[in-house]
């Protein structure tokens, strides 16, 4: 049985890397007493995947995990058992059973909503003023780090929306397995356009988004 759940990675944990959060979640599954499934083979591990890796330095409000269970468990019982086994910084907010034939959550992610708080007030003002002109550009080429090195990439089509709200930049960015725009890339390009050094920011990923049959973006857990 497959369970999809949303969980928080609190601001306090933002420096914890993806693999460490993954291991912490596996240990929580072990602590929970839930009938978790293990892989077959010589070194069995818990069957757990995350929809999307969250970068070091970013917090997440509704991150998504999928766990496989050997026996049926009600979603509310899953949440209760996990929350008893997780620190306050990593609590689950919801869970639902998903069909075994459904594609992995990882393959369903299309975009993500970010909240990027600029800690320096004057930098925030400068960026706010620069944003309309920045978005009006036909293409925005910035460096993207890949496994094979740094590649110049046009991120304009990947910025689905962006607006400043006080000191906070709210952005909806493409995030698929094939191509994605990270908040860091957006900040680098925007700061360069505004002619300032990249300011210190606090990044929070608010939600991951998937698509319904009509091509409409919805929170992934609701698709």
């Amino acid at each position: 049985m497959r369970m999809l759940a949303t969980f928080e990675k609190s601001e306090r944990l933002r420096h914890i890397g993806h693999l460490d959060i993954m291991r912490a979640m596996q240990r929580a599954l072990r602590r929970s007493g839930l009938p978790v499934s293990y892989s077959k083979g010589f070194n069995p591990h818990i069957l757990l995947t995350f929809a999307s890796a969250l970068s070091v330095g970013a917090a997440g409000e509704r991150e998504i995990l999928e766990a496989t269970l050997d026996e049926a468990v009600a979603p509310e019982d899953f949440v209760a058992a996990m929350n008893g086994a997780l620190p306050p910084e990593m609590q689950l907010s919801s869970a639902r059973i998903v069909d075994d034939r459904r594609p992995a959550a990882m393959a369903m992610v299309k975009a993500a909503d970010y909240r990027i708080r600029v800690t320096d007030a004057s930098a925030a003002e400068t960026l706010c003023a620069a944003l309309p002109g920045f978005l009006a550009q036909g293409e925005i080429v910035t460096d993207r780090k890949t496994k094979s090195g740094i590649k110049p990439t046009d991120i304009r089509p990947l910025i689905l929306s962006a607006e400043m709200d006080g000191d906070t930049l709210r952005a909806r960015l493409t995030a698929t397995e094939a191509v994605s725009c990270k908040p860091g890339m957006l900040m680098n390009a925007l700061s360069a356009f505004a002619g300032i050094e990249v300011p210190r920011v606090m990044v929070t990923r608010e939600r991951l988004l998937g698509e319904n049959e009509d091509g409409q973006l919805l929170p992934l857990e609701a698709v």
Partner: peptide, 24 residues
């Protein structure tokens, strides 16, 4: 706290200082 958070951006192995572990 704000100053500490700003420092944590700059150091190696920030998780050494952040806490929030299970059973803390």
């Amino acid at each position: 706290n704000d100053k500490i958070e700003a420092m944590l951006e700059k150091v190696q192995k920030a998780p050494r200082y952040t806490g929030g572990e299970m059973n803390a």
